[in-house]
Amino acid sequence: MLKFLAMGGYARYVWPCYVLTAAVVGLNIRWALRSLHSARAAARRRIAAVRAAS
């Protein structure tokens, strides 16, 4: 296990790459969901306002 983590001496370079990738992949999921949710919330508010006015 330790040998695997050491990456033949390249751990300093290999693992940061994977951590960065995980961060970008995770953040993109978060941003996409947040963008969808904010659009849906805005649409809901607009519909509610229209219904209240009519």
Binding site: A32, L33, S35, L36, H37, S38, A39, R40, A42, A43
Partner: peptide, 9 residues
């Protein structure tokens, strides 16, 4: 996922 949000906008 993103395109759905953009479409709603």
């Amino acid at each position: 996922i993103r395109a759905r949000g953009e479409l709603l906008r």
